[in-house]
Write a protein that binds this DNA or RNA. Structure first.
Ligand SMILES: [Zn+2]
Ligand SMILES: [Zn+2]
Ligand SMILES: [Zn+2]
Ligand SMILES: [Zn+2]
Lengths: 144, 144
DNA sequence: GGGCGTAATGTTATACAATAACAATCAGGT
DNA sequence: ACCTGATTGTTATTGTATAACATTACGCCC
């Protein structure tokens, strides 16, 4: 899906769920889309400053928080960064794979596998609400 | 296991695997042990400064990195913090449960469940080396 | 013991990440 | 026009982590 298509789909998605994808938020989303892999907040900030002239950290953090809230982005704690969710429409549980050789970051839809984890948590009386699962290793391309 | 017993076991463990648990590293480990739940680097730094008079961030970060490397601590990315591993002796895959009500952080040994995740990753040609898995929710005590 | 190489620690400075607090603006409803 | 709540702007600060280089401690060979 091209960035433009993604943006259009995101518009419709927010419209449908009653949240407002404002010009600023849309611009931030476009900036994230314009880069491959994981994107850092301060990188977005720098890009935004190039396009707008002035911007401060809260501006970009608020927009990123909104986008994560809507499910358009996922935050990757292990990297202090964000990735675009390729299938925000359908409810899903994310599993993030990080290649330590080439830096590739991809999202695997591992909904089934995660049931096991939730079960393991439930055995200890723990009720999970959200998750942040990262596997670090080597991707397909980088296998020695 | 008491902190003293833990420290003694850690000594033997490092000895056995040929790594050096120096006085500084041992002191940092003791400081982490002295606190419940998740511990932040700058908290350890403050404690260390109280005991030693002077210390800088690299000192505590290097010690923490060593302890994580040895498997005595786990880093919890989602919290920018560290927890003591209660069973560093046996190889295991960690799953960290974080209660958003009371702040409790515990480690569940979910080795079996994780096979599924690794399998999901393998299907994409990805070879996981290490992981950081966090579930956020409510613990047994905090269920409304 | 003296010299040597490596690992560990000390020191200073800086980079990177995130939020607090408050002001100004915008958009929709009455 | 007026009110209200959401969004954005602005300034300042706090928190997290590492770079770069100096110094010290330790094991080993001679
Ligand atoms: Zn996703
Ligand atoms: Zn790779
Ligand atoms: Zn553990
Ligand atoms: Zn709790």
């Amino acid at each position: 899906m091209s960035p433009d298509d993604y943006l259009a789909a995101a518009e419709r998605y927010c419209e449908a769920r009653g949240s407002k994808l404002t010009a600023l938020r849309r611009q931030v989303l476009a900036l994230v889309l314009s880069q491959p892999g994981v994107v850092k907040a301060y990188q977005v900030l720098a890009d935004l400053q190039r396009e707008r002239g002035a911007a401060a950290p809260p501006t970009v953090y608020r927009a990123l928080d909104f986008l994560v809230e809507q499910g358009l982005l996922h935050r990757v704690d292990a990297l202090n960064g964000f990735i675009v969710c390729p299938h925000f429409e359908c409810a899903h549980e994310g599993l993030i794979l990080v290649c330590e050789r080439c830096g590739l970051v991809e999202e695997a839809d591992a909904t089934n596998s995660l049931d096991m984890l939730h079960q393991a948590a439930a055995e200890r009386g723990f009720a999970p609400r959200r998750q942040n699962l990262v596997l670090t290793g080597t991707c397909k391309e980088c296998h020695a």
